[in-house]
Amino acid sequence: MSERLPILRIGGNLLVSIQADLDDQTVMNLQEDLAEHVVRHGARGVIIDITAAEIVDSFVGRMLSTIASISRLLDAETVVVGMRPAVAITLVELGLSLGGVRTALNLEQGLAILAERSSAGPAAR
């Protein structure tokens, strides 16, 4: 049942869309694949679109934080976009803060954050 999610390139950034209810192995695969893609393409930013995700539990939340930390070591910024209100309310109640992860309401605003960072240089933020 585990699969590998497609990773798209937009300019110097990578884009992953979480479409369905993921099993744990697919989540682990994504973590590996993203790190590899960041290095291979010299990506400066990673966008993870969770618009379609109906829930984010602590396992997925931890994965998002880990991806952000790994990417930062590889000099890429991670932005999580499209979190649903019900998911955000649940995460707050769960006590998960997604430390180190930047978020934006939608893909457009996520790309704007990355564009601003690259124009301001790596020292920004």
Binding site: E54, I55, V56, S58, R84, A86, V87, I89, E93, L94
Partner: peptide, 14 residues
């Protein structure tokens, strides 16, 4: 409600 569904499904997942 949608929020309560999300909370319960998340709790079940944990």
């Amino acid at each position: 409600s949608l929020v309560d569904q999300t909370k319960l499904v998340t709790a079940a997942s944990e």
